[in-house]
Design a protein around this nucleic acid. Structure first.
Lengths: 156, 156
DNA sequence: TACGATTAAATCGTGTACGATATATAAAAC
DNA sequence: GTTTTATATATCGTACACGATTTAATCGTA
Protein backbone atom coordinates (compact mmCIF):
# COMPACT_ATOMS: atom_id res chain seq x y z
CA UNK A 1 0.00 0.00 0.00
CA UNK A 2 1.19 3.50 -0.79
CA UNK A 3 2.00 5.85 2.03
CA UNK A 4 -0.02 9.05 2.37
CA UNK A 5 0.71 9.80 6.01
CA UNK A 6 2.48 13.01 5.01
CA UNK A 7 -0.78 14.42 3.60
CA UNK A 8 -1.56 17.44 5.78
CA UNK A 9 -5.29 16.83 5.31
CA UNK A 10 -5.08 13.35 6.77
CA UNK A 11 -6.01 14.31 10.35
CA UNK A 12 -8.84 16.57 9.15
CA UNK A 13 -10.24 13.79 7.01
CA UNK A 14 -10.32 11.46 9.99
CA UNK A 15 -12.03 14.13 12.08
CA UNK A 16 -14.70 14.41 9.43
CA UNK A 17 -15.24 10.64 9.48
CA UNK A 18 -15.67 10.71 13.21
CA UNK A 19 -18.04 13.68 12.95
CA UNK A 20 -20.29 11.74 10.62
CA UNK A 21 -20.02 8.61 12.76
CA UNK A 22 -20.95 10.37 15.98
CA UNK A 23 -23.57 12.59 14.32
CA UNK A 24 -25.25 9.42 13.12
CA UNK A 25 -25.45 8.13 16.67
CA UNK A 26 -26.78 11.47 17.82
CA UNK A 27 -29.56 11.39 15.22
CA UNK A 28 -30.41 7.86 16.25
CA UNK A 29 -30.74 8.94 19.86
CA UNK A 30 -32.91 11.84 18.74
CA UNK A 31 -35.28 9.61 16.78
CA UNK A 32 -35.46 6.85 19.37
CA UNK A 33 -37.97 8.35 21.83
CA UNK A 34 -40.23 9.46 18.96
CA UNK A 35 -40.09 6.11 17.21
CA UNK A 36 -40.50 4.16 20.44
CA UNK A 37 -44.10 5.40 20.43
CA UNK A 38 -44.55 3.75 17.05
CA UNK A 39 -42.58 0.65 18.10
CA UNK A 40 -40.20 1.26 15.18
CA UNK A 41 -36.44 1.55 14.88
CA UNK A 42 -34.93 4.20 12.62
CA UNK A 43 -34.16 1.81 9.74
CA UNK A 44 -37.65 0.32 10.09
CA UNK A 45 -39.06 3.85 9.95
CA UNK A 46 -37.15 4.48 6.72
CA UNK A 47 -38.63 1.32 5.22
CA UNK A 48 -42.12 2.39 6.24
CA UNK A 49 -41.60 5.85 4.74
CA UNK A 50 -40.64 4.25 1.44
CA UNK A 51 -43.70 2.01 1.55
CA UNK A 52 -46.02 4.89 2.37
CA UNK A 53 -44.72 6.70 -0.70
CA UNK A 54 -44.95 3.60 -2.92
CA UNK A 55 -46.27 0.19 -1.94
CA UNK A 56 -45.13 -3.14 -3.32
CA UNK A 57 -41.39 -2.48 -3.45
CA UNK A 58 -38.88 -5.29 -3.76
CA UNK A 59 -36.09 -6.02 -1.30
CA UNK A 60 -33.64 -4.87 -3.94
CA UNK A 61 -35.39 -1.51 -4.24
CA UNK A 62 -35.10 -0.98 -0.50
CA UNK A 63 -31.45 -1.87 -0.73
CA UNK A 64 -30.84 0.69 -3.45
CA UNK A 65 -32.78 3.43 -1.71
CA UNK A 66 -31.30 2.85 1.74
CA UNK A 67 -27.85 1.58 0.74
CA UNK A 68 -28.33 -1.60 2.75
CA UNK A 69 -27.59 -5.24 1.96
CA UNK A 70 -30.14 -8.03 1.83
CA UNK A 71 -28.41 -9.49 4.88
CA UNK A 72 -29.58 -6.42 6.77
CA UNK A 73 -32.97 -6.01 5.12
CA UNK A 74 -34.27 -9.56 5.21
CA UNK A 75 -34.27 -9.85 9.02
CA UNK A 76 -35.54 -6.27 9.35
CA UNK A 77 -38.47 -6.95 7.02
CA UNK A 78 -39.25 -10.17 8.85
CA UNK A 79 -39.50 -8.20 12.07
CA UNK A 80 -41.87 -5.69 10.43
CA UNK A 81 -43.92 -8.63 9.21
CA UNK A 82 -43.97 -10.14 12.69
CA UNK A 83 -45.27 -6.76 13.93
CA UNK A 84 -48.12 -7.05 11.45
CA UNK A 85 -47.19 -3.89 9.52
CA UNK A 86 -46.22 -5.51 6.23
CA UNK A 87 -46.57 -8.66 4.13
CA UNK A 88 -43.84 -10.28 2.03
CA UNK A 89 -44.75 -12.17 -1.13
CA UNK A 90 -42.77 -13.65 -3.99
CA UNK A 91 -43.42 -11.86 -7.27
CA UNK A 92 -45.56 -14.06 -9.54
CA UNK A 93 -43.67 -12.97 -12.67
CA UNK A 94 -40.22 -13.45 -11.15
CA UNK A 95 -40.07 -15.85 -8.25
CA UNK A 96 -36.66 -14.52 -7.22
CA UNK A 97 -38.16 -11.17 -6.22
CA UNK A 98 -39.86 -10.59 -2.86
CA UNK A 99 -42.36 -7.72 -2.83
CA UNK A 100 -43.40 -5.91 0.32
CA UNK A 101 -46.94 -4.63 0.88
CA UNK A 102 -48.47 -2.60 3.67
CA UNK A 103 -51.16 -4.20 5.82
CA UNK A 104 -54.13 -2.28 7.26
CA UNK A 105 -52.06 -1.73 10.37
CA UNK A 106 -49.13 -0.55 8.29
CA UNK A 107 -51.29 2.01 6.51
CA UNK A 108 -52.81 3.13 9.80
CA UNK A 109 -49.39 3.81 11.32
CA UNK A 110 -48.82 6.58 8.80
CA UNK A 111 -51.10 8.95 10.68
CA UNK A 112 -49.33 8.31 13.95
CA UNK A 113 -45.98 9.00 12.31
CA UNK A 114 -47.05 12.34 10.87
CA UNK A 115 -45.53 14.23 13.81
CA UNK A 116 -42.04 12.80 13.48
CA UNK A 117 -40.54 14.90 10.68
CA UNK A 118 -41.67 18.13 12.31
CA UNK A 119 -40.28 17.09 15.68
CA UNK A 120 -36.95 16.29 14.06
CA UNK A 121 -36.89 19.58 12.15
CA UNK A 122 -37.65 21.46 15.33
CA UNK A 123 -34.99 19.60 17.29
CA UNK A 124 -32.38 20.30 14.64
CA UNK A 125 -33.53 23.88 14.51
CA UNK A 126 -32.22 24.90 11.11
CA UNK A 127 -33.70 27.07 8.35
CA UNK A 128 -34.12 25.67 4.88
CA UNK A 129 -31.06 27.57 3.62
CA UNK A 130 -28.89 26.10 6.31
CA UNK A 131 -30.21 22.61 5.66
CA UNK A 132 -29.13 22.99 2.07
CA UNK A 133 -25.62 23.79 3.29
CA UNK A 134 -25.81 20.53 5.25
CA UNK A 135 -24.71 21.76 8.63
CA UNK A 136 -21.44 23.70 8.43
CA UNK A 137 -20.07 21.85 11.36
CA UNK A 138 -21.40 18.40 12.12
CA UNK A 139 -19.86 18.50 15.56
CA UNK A 140 -21.95 21.49 16.61
CA UNK A 141 -24.98 19.84 15.12
CA UNK A 142 -24.26 16.64 17.01
CA UNK A 143 -24.03 18.51 20.31
CA UNK A 144 -27.26 20.38 19.71
CA UNK A 145 -29.05 17.17 18.76
CA UNK A 146 -27.79 15.47 21.88
CA UNK A 147 -29.26 18.22 24.03
CA UNK A 148 -32.56 18.17 22.14
CA UNK A 149 -32.60 14.41 22.35
CA UNK A 150 -32.32 14.57 26.13
CA UNK A 151 -35.04 17.23 26.29
CA UNK A 152 -37.39 15.11 24.21
CA UNK A 153 -36.70 12.08 26.36
CA UNK A 154 -37.49 14.12 29.49
CA UNK A 155 -40.93 15.26 28.30
CA UNK A 156 -41.97 11.86 26.96
CA UNK B 1 -47.00 15.32 21.51
CA UNK B 2 -47.19 18.65 19.72
CA UNK B 3 -47.71 18.68 15.98
CA UNK B 4 -45.01 20.17 13.75
CA UNK B 5 -45.91 18.39 10.53
CA UNK B 6 -46.69 21.74 8.91
CA UNK B 7 -43.05 22.83 9.31
CA UNK B 8 -41.77 23.30 5.76
CA UNK B 9 -38.28 22.20 6.85
CA UNK B 10 -39.55 18.86 8.10
CA UNK B 11 -38.78 16.85 4.93
CA UNK B 12 -35.37 18.53 4.53
CA UNK B 13 -34.49 17.72 8.11
CA UNK B 14 -35.28 14.06 7.53
CA UNK B 15 -33.20 14.06 4.37
CA UNK B 16 -30.28 15.42 6.36
CA UNK B 17 -30.69 12.66 8.95
CA UNK B 18 -30.62 10.06 6.24
CA UNK B 19 -27.59 11.70 4.63
CA UNK B 20 -25.67 11.42 7.86
CA UNK B 21 -26.90 7.87 8.42
CA UNK B 22 -25.88 6.67 4.97
CA UNK B 23 -22.65 8.67 4.90
CA UNK B 24 -21.69 6.89 8.12
CA UNK B 25 -22.17 3.53 6.43
CA UNK B 26 -20.18 4.74 3.44
CA UNK B 27 -17.27 5.78 5.67
CA UNK B 28 -17.41 2.43 7.40
CA UNK B 29 -17.17 0.64 4.08
CA UNK B 30 -14.25 2.88 3.14
CA UNK B 31 -12.34 2.08 6.31
CA UNK B 32 -13.09 -1.62 6.34
CA UNK B 33 -10.56 -2.88 3.78
CA UNK B 34 -7.81 -0.72 5.33
CA UNK B 35 -8.59 -1.80 8.87
CA UNK B 36 -9.00 -5.45 7.89
CA UNK B 37 -5.23 -5.48 7.40
CA UNK B 38 -4.86 -4.41 11.03
CA UNK B 39 -7.62 -6.78 12.19
CA UNK B 40 -9.47 -3.80 13.66
CA UNK B 41 -13.01 -2.47 13.31
CA UNK B 42 -13.59 1.27 13.00
CA UNK B 43 -14.62 1.79 16.64
CA UNK B 44 -11.66 -0.35 17.73
CA UNK B 45 -9.42 1.84 15.57
CA UNK B 46 -10.79 4.95 17.29
CA UNK B 47 -9.99 3.43 20.68
CA UNK B 48 -6.46 2.62 19.55
CA UNK B 49 -5.98 6.17 18.22
CA UNK B 50 -6.96 7.54 21.62
CA UNK B 51 -4.58 5.17 23.36
CA UNK B 52 -1.72 6.04 21.03
CA UNK B 53 -2.20 9.69 21.91
CA UNK B 54 -2.54 9.01 25.65
CA UNK B 55 -2.19 5.67 27.40
CA UNK B 56 -3.97 4.58 30.56
CA UNK B 57 -7.39 6.04 29.83
CA UNK B 58 -10.47 4.93 31.72
CA UNK B 59 -13.59 3.44 30.15
CA UNK B 60 -15.41 6.63 31.03
CA UNK B 61 -12.85 8.73 29.14
CA UNK B 62 -13.38 6.59 26.04
CA UNK B 63 -17.11 7.04 26.45
CA UNK B 64 -16.80 10.81 26.62
CA UNK B 65 -14.42 11.02 23.68
CA UNK B 66 -16.35 8.63 21.43
CA UNK B 67 -19.89 9.27 22.71
CA UNK B 68 -20.39 5.58 23.47
CA UNK B 69 -21.90 3.80 26.45
CA UNK B 70 -20.12 1.32 28.70
CA UNK B 71 -22.44 -1.34 27.32
CA UNK B 72 -20.76 -0.77 23.97
CA UNK B 73 -17.23 -0.18 25.20
CA UNK B 74 -16.84 -3.01 27.68
CA UNK B 75 -17.29 -5.81 25.12
CA UNK B 76 -15.23 -3.87 22.57
CA UNK B 77 -12.34 -3.45 25.02
CA UNK B 78 -12.55 -7.11 25.96
CA UNK B 79 -12.14 -8.02 22.30
CA UNK B 80 -9.09 -5.74 22.02
CA UNK B 81 -7.72 -7.44 25.11
CA UNK B 82 -8.40 -10.86 23.63
CA UNK B 83 -6.44 -9.70 20.54
CA UNK B 84 -3.51 -8.91 22.82
CA UNK B 85 -3.45 -5.19 21.97
CA UNK B 86 -4.45 -3.81 25.37
CA UNK B 87 -4.67 -4.64 29.07
CA UNK B 88 -7.50 -3.67 31.43
CA UNK B 89 -6.77 -3.04 35.11
CA UNK B 90 -8.77 -1.65 37.97
CA UNK B 91 -7.38 1.67 39.23
CA UNK B 92 -5.66 1.18 42.59
CA UNK B 93 -6.90 4.52 43.93
CA UNK B 94 -10.50 4.00 42.78
CA UNK B 95 -11.51 0.41 42.30
CA UNK B 96 -14.56 1.45 40.27
CA UNK B 97 -12.36 2.71 37.44
CA UNK B 98 -10.91 0.42 34.78
CA UNK B 99 -7.81 1.77 33.06
CA UNK B 100 -6.68 0.62 29.65
CA UNK B 101 -3.01 0.26 28.72
CA UNK B 102 -1.30 -0.62 25.46
CA UNK B 103 0.69 -3.85 25.26
CA UNK B 104 3.86 -4.25 23.18
CA UNK B 105 1.70 -5.48 20.36
CA UNK B 106 -0.62 -2.52 20.76
CA UNK B 107 2.28 -0.08 20.52
CA UNK B 108 3.67 -1.92 17.51
CA UNK B 109 0.40 -1.65 15.61
CA UNK B 110 0.77 2.13 15.50
CA UNK B 111 3.37 1.92 12.75
CA UNK B 112 1.17 -0.32 10.63
CA UNK B 113 -1.74 2.09 11.04
CA UNK B 114 0.26 5.13 9.89
CA UNK B 115 -1.04 4.78 6.33
CA UNK B 116 -4.70 4.87 7.21
CA UNK B 117 -5.36 8.61 7.67
CA UNK B 118 -3.64 9.45 4.40
CA UNK B 119 -5.57 6.79 2.51
CA UNK B 120 -8.81 8.16 3.90
CA UNK B 121 -7.86 11.74 3.04
CA UNK B 122 -6.99 10.68 -0.47
CA UNK B 123 -10.21 8.72 -0.88
CA UNK B 124 -12.30 11.65 0.31
CA UNK B 125 -10.28 13.92 -1.92
CA UNK B 126 -10.94 17.26 -0.27
CA UNK B 127 -8.70 20.25 0.43
CA UNK B 128 -8.30 21.53 3.95
CA UNK B 129 -10.65 24.44 3.25
CA UNK B 130 -13.37 22.16 2.07
CA UNK B 131 -12.93 19.85 5.04
CA UNK B 132 -13.50 22.82 7.29
CA UNK B 133 -16.79 23.43 5.50
CA UNK B 134 -17.66 19.81 6.29
CA UNK B 135 -18.73 18.62 2.87
CA UNK B 136 -21.38 20.89 1.34
CA UNK B 137 -23.47 17.96 0.41
CA UNK B 138 -23.10 14.76 2.37
CA UNK B 139 -24.88 12.82 -0.34
CA UNK B 140 -22.21 13.67 -2.92
CA UNK B 141 -19.58 12.80 -0.37
CA UNK B 142 -21.25 9.47 0.30
CA UNK B 143 -21.28 8.59 -3.38
CA UNK B 144 -17.64 9.54 -3.86
CA UNK B 145 -16.64 7.48 -0.83
CA UNK B 146 -18.54 4.50 -2.11
CA UNK B 147 -16.68 4.60 -5.42
CA UNK B 148 -13.32 5.04 -3.69
CA UNK B 149 -14.22 2.26 -1.29
CA UNK B 150 -14.82 -0.11 -4.17
CA UNK B 151 -11.57 0.98 -5.83
CA UNK B 152 -9.63 0.35 -2.64
CA UNK B 153 -11.22 -3.05 -2.21
CA UNK B 154 -10.28 -3.96 -5.79
CA UNK B 155 -6.58 -3.18 -5.35
CA UNK B 156 -6.24 -4.88 -1.98
C1' DT C 1 -33.12 -26.53 -25.52
C1' DA C 2 -29.64 -27.27 -22.52
C1' DC C 3 -26.39 -25.28 -19.56
C1' DG C 4 -23.25 -21.88 -17.75
C1' DA C 5 -23.67 -17.22 -15.97
C1' DT C 6 -26.26 -13.85 -13.62
C1' DT C 7 -29.54 -12.19 -10.39
C1' DA C 8 -32.48 -11.85 -5.94
C1' DA C 9 -33.01 -13.21 -1.34
C1' DA C 10 -31.76 -15.65 2.49
C1' DT C 11 -28.49 -17.55 5.90
C1' DC C 12 -24.53 -17.43 8.96
C1' DG C 13 -21.02 -15.50 11.95
C1' DT C 14 -18.98 -11.36 14.00
C1' DG C 15 -19.19 -6.93 15.90
C1' DT C 16 -21.25 -2.73 17.09
C1' DA C 17 -24.92 0.12 19.66
C1' DC C 18 -28.39 0.99 22.89
C1' DG C 19 -31.55 1.06 27.16
C1' DA C 20 -32.44 -1.14 31.36
C1' DT C 21 -30.57 -3.13 35.03
C1' DA C 22 -27.11 -4.97 38.33
C1' DT C 23 -22.98 -4.68 41.16
C1' DA C 24 -19.40 -2.78 43.55
C1' DT C 25 -16.94 1.10 45.18
C1' DA C 26 -16.64 5.80 46.74
C1' DA C 27 -18.60 10.11 48.39
C1' DA C 28 -21.95 12.72 50.95
C1' DA C 29 -25.18 13.50 54.54
C1' DC C 30 -26.90 12.95 58.81
C1' DG D 1 -19.77 6.24 61.76
C1' DT D 2 -23.56 4.56 59.39
C1' DT D 3 -26.81 5.21 55.87
C1' DT D 4 -28.02 7.26 51.65
C1' DT D 5 -26.60 8.76 47.26
C1' DA D 6 -23.76 8.95 43.37
C1' DT D 7 -20.40 6.99 40.24
C1' DA D 8 -17.91 3.45 37.18
C1' DT D 9 -18.29 -0.74 34.86
C1' DA D 10 -20.51 -4.84 33.58
C1' DT D 11 -24.41 -7.73 31.98
C1' DC D 12 -28.44 -8.78 29.27
C1' DG D 13 -31.66 -8.61 25.45
C1' DT D 14 -32.80 -6.60 21.01
C1' DA D 15 -31.69 -4.86 16.60
C1' DC D 16 -28.84 -3.31 13.09
C1' DA D 17 -24.93 -3.94 9.52
C1' DC D 18 -21.67 -6.23 6.93
C1' DG D 19 -18.99 -9.84 4.11
C1' DA D 20 -19.09 -14.44 2.65
C1' DT D 21 -21.73 -17.97 1.21
C1' DT D 22 -25.92 -20.48 -0.28
C1' DT D 23 -30.14 -21.39 -2.80
C1' DA D 24 -33.36 -20.77 -6.23
C1' DA D 25 -34.95 -18.65 -10.36
C1' DT D 26 -34.02 -16.42 -14.71
C1' DC D 27 -31.27 -15.15 -18.65
C1' DG D 28 -27.93 -15.76 -22.52
C1' DT D 29 -26.21 -18.10 -25.83
C1' DA D 30 -24.52 -21.66 -28.36
Amino acid sequence: MERFAADPNAPLAEFLCFSVYSAGHAFNRLYRPLLDELALTYPQYLVMQLLWSKDGRSVKEFGQALRLESSTLTPLLKRLQASGLIERKRDADDERVVRVHLTEKGHALRGQAADVPGCIAKAIGLESDELAKLARTLDNLRDRITVESENLADTT
